[in-house]
Design a protein around this nucleic acid. Sequence first.
DNA 1: CTGCTTGCAAATAGTTTGCACGTTC
DNA 2: GAACGTGCAAACTATTTGCAAGCAG
Lengths: 162, 162
Amino acid sequence: MTLTAGAGHASADRVLERTIKAIHAHGGRVTPARLAVISAIVDSEGHVSAEEIFERIQAGSPDIHLSTVYRTLEALEKLGVVEHVHLGHGRAIYHLEENLHQHLVCESCGKIIEAPRDLTERLEMELEARLGFYTRAHHFSIIGLCRDCHRREQGGGTKNPT
Amino acid sequence: MTLTAGAGHASADRVLERTIKAIHAHGGRVTPARLAVISAIVDSEGHVSAEEIFERIQAGSPDIHLSTVYRTLEALEKLGVVEHVHLGHGRAIYHLEENLHQHLVCESCGKIIEAPRDLTERLEMELEARLGFYTRAHHFSIIGLCRDCHRREQGGGTKNPT
DNA sequence: CTGCTTGCAAATAGTTTGCACGTTC
DNA sequence: GAACGTGCAAACTATTTGCAAGCAG
């Protein structure tokens, strides 16, 4: 829980409202399933796999199917409400598009840190200026070691990369 | 495919040699399958999925199984010879660890561009200085649009900065 | 000879899809 | 009422694994 980014629970309703508007704007229907998925993502501080969302939802609405979660996520992604990243071998992780940030994933403990935007913004600008490469998604993942794990491996002498 | 030395890039042989040494150093065996996998990666300019490697190998050695390719890649990754990244929903892409670079993946045409190291080096340094996050892997993927696709989507190429 | 490697096939994990029915607008 | 969304099950893709036979050292 060492997130330096400000966590705004007050924004939860705003996200919901914005999403509903977006769904309507595209001729879509606002269904319990979709509301549940959005709530699950908001509740989970922004980093969840499809299955985690599914499990969270199951508690309150056992009738919602996993495939619906996937389809809803796809729809929400098309609406620009959520995005997903592949952090490793397994499942993808979804988060609100509002949370424009880079994921710093610790290889050792799996912790996900959010890098301040300004650090990467410059990189994006330079990529565009020098290579003409336009980073549309505004997100990517950086694999490495968090402060603690790095320190541990430096000092402890436990070198065991899996 | 064929192990004809000398005709290819000068670095190809060096990679092979280094890899053989690494395999031996870890008590592993140098097998035709492993040589074929390494050659396939080197031949392919560094960006290949497991299946592409498999197909390349099939041409010369139809007896090598896909699962062997996976197992070999895993072994080579453990030895620090190759690395892999997940660029999208589908398969992972493998490349030589020597090729320390960032992948810029064009969302639209799928082209993979390699960003010059210095662009990202600064980001890495700042991540370490400000967050204590140490980017061990020295690689990550940035999704976006290449110059051409970006221009096309802009609609007519209004400006032309080079 | 010894045990790391491989081929094969079957298993897994994560995600997608076809179809008929239920819901939302 | 029509179009969109959903449940369900089955398909699919990428990758992994158990086991016995095969080779490298």
